[in-house]
Design a protein around this nucleic acid. Sequence first.
RNA 1: GGAGGAGUGGCCGAGUGGUUGAAGGCACCGGUCUUGAAAACCGGCAGGGUCGAAAGGCCCUCGGGGGUUCGAAUCCCUCCUCCUCCGCCA
Length: 428
Amino acid sequence: MLELNVIRREPEKVKAGLRKRNWKEEDLGIVDRILALDEQRRKLQTQRDELLAQSNKLSKQIGQLFKQGKREAVEALKAQVTTIKATLKELQERKAALDTQLEALLLSLPNIPHPSVPAGSSDADNEIYKDWSGALPQLPATAQPHWELAKQYGIFDLELGAKLTGAGFPVFRGQGARLERALINFFLDEARAAGYEEIQPPLLVNADTARGTGQLPDKEGQMYYIEKDELYLIPTAEVPITNIFRDAIVPASALPIKMAGYTPCFRREAGSYGAHVRGLNRVHQFDKVEIVQIAHPQHSYEVLEEMLAYVSSLLDKLELLYRIVKLCGGDLGFTAALTYDFEVWSAAQERWLEVSSVSNFETYQANRMKLRFRDGQKKTQLAHTLNGSALALARVVAALLEQNQEPDGIRIPQVLVPYTGFERIVRS
RNA sequence: GGAGGAGUGGCCGAGUGGUUGAAGGCACCGGUCUUGAAAACCGGCAGGGUCGAAAGGCCCUCGGGGGUUCGAAUCCCUCCUCCUCCGCCA
């Protein structure tokens, strides 16, 4: 949620941000509507507060008079307060209505893109931030996409998942399951070495938590919802981990706070069709290690760089080819100010697969969560939140399988061997 | 799931209708003292909204919501959470 005082102070900047997100001119009026509502709300509140002050004062007097036993005076004042209360009730109702309206409008406003975010309407307009420098490898003509390899080597089984649950729920088996577990452990160990506290959060969250990071109300349809208990399955560990600090005030000296956690992620997303969703390209449940940082506003972009370097180091260690893409205004998520995607080269599919998304949300999430820090004096200030996948497993597995396929098996990157306990995946 | 108990500021804890946004203690911050530190002493120390150039004023918040009352941390209703016992269970 954008800060109201930012909208008050710089409405034009907010509108410019919305334009970058390709909002139509006629929709920008929301900013003015918010300002108008805010103005009304403040007026109403001033009136209300004055009446409350009067009534509080009279009530205190009544208390004193009562002690002195002045019954008639008490009755007269009581009548006065009752009159005030009647007016007050009406004001309260109007204010509550305004508050609700204002809140709804504020929730519907996305974050303002960082100045460096390129213009554009779709992923085709994203800027290549760091390209793969070498030549893309040519696999032999016999090379298989990962879903074929999965069948040959018994790595995962989507049909079996469909039997147990439905489409998009892979069942990993044998060496495939061990590879999955190896990657999770590798990523967690790396994160710990980089100074992240390991977190194991709940996989189900309540509405307050889902709202805090911005999944509600914007992306309600993307989450699985358990109606009976009013709980949501997490689409990413970002949600519970960032919300650890919801309604918290931390000392400035504690920043940056670094946390990492492994969780399965659940996505209902309708998705597209065809080859782009085959195999592990797009599934309803996948594993991911997420890194989250809570940073001082002055340093959050340095932190973002640090996170980029960290994710790069993981991909380097896994010997995967990747590039980094800076998302354009049209592709940028609702809550992010700046996002870099990491895309890994899927050799057999001859396309780039997104394996990580690293974002700075500035104060957008913090404002919803009331996540603040206390600076030098007494004042509290909203912190910046950042997160990134480090990494999303399913697609990393897809790329690893394809890139490392050899006639007699699939080679495991050196760094993973201590985790898998085997050097090759072979036909069973 | 059943029965009982409890939820007060960063923590402990007093407070059962009238200057209580809340005693006292701990922690923390500043100061005095000290060569320095500790101890002792003095002072400060909730968040938010709103008005104001500022100083400061006013309003809201004692688990959440609603109600009774001129007035509620204190009474009533409801929901949530935690604890104890029983049941069930990985």
